[in-house]
Amino acid sequence: MSYDLLVAIGMTIVLIVRGIDLSVGSVMALSSVTMALLMRGDVPVLLALAAGLIVALFCGLVNGLLVVKGGILPFLVTLGMMSVARGLATVVTTGQYISFPSAPPWFSQFGRFEFRIEIGGTSYGLPLILLIGLAFVAITSLLLAYWTPFRSFFFVGESPEAARLSGMNVDRIMITAYLLSALFVWFTALLLTSANKIGYANYGIGAELRALAAAVVGGASLAGGAGSIFGAFLGVLMLALIGNGFVMLNGNPNWQQASVGVVLIAAVGIDALRTYRDRR
């Protein structure tokens, strides 16, 4: 769930500027594979992580440039990127797991680290990645609410034309949104690679749809200008609870995939009902 949460934060920001990023899952795989391959080749960990970051940011930059300068619909651009990045990740690994036995142990431990809390004699584990996810929710929410450069995402998404006329650098702001999404994707890839101790070309399949569903459930609109990180958090929580419910109720877990689609359509339907009066 923490992984979905980080991706959903990035997706919400992109949705706010009237974009969409379908490439998150594949870029996650590509970034993870890059890091794992470099670490297997005895490259220092930090250098490998930086390389993964560069790969992710490069994908984000290409997305942003094609959308802004090329004037192509965001979903087509990122759909293309989705195929390219997943393909590249598969090509360089030939579809196999990439383990990195020689990497220092701290790297493969922090993704699984848990704080132990004693309550009434029982020990509860609080995963570090959950705390990181929650911290990012808090930070990005505050930034979106109070920090001017982040506030401008809303203005650009609400009306790019008006934002341009009032002197904002719309192109740069939109590209920044895609870069931020790529940044969160890289961080997710980092945590995934660390927690599973492998890089894998099939990481993040369907992640874009879960993130999209969560963001839309949380109040983001595809028409831009609206969206809330806390809402996306609630959306992720809801999808996770539904998934968990299937397991708890001994249901067929295969239905879980279908439930994400139903939630997405229901969220859009509710959004349509909510804005019905405005549109008349």
Partner: peptide, 14 residues
């Protein structure tokens, strides 16, 4: 895009 993607996902799950 959103509707057909939702149907894509739901139907694949089904």
């Amino acid at each position: 895009l959103i509707i057909t993607m939702g149907i894509l996902l739901t139907l694949r799950g089904i």
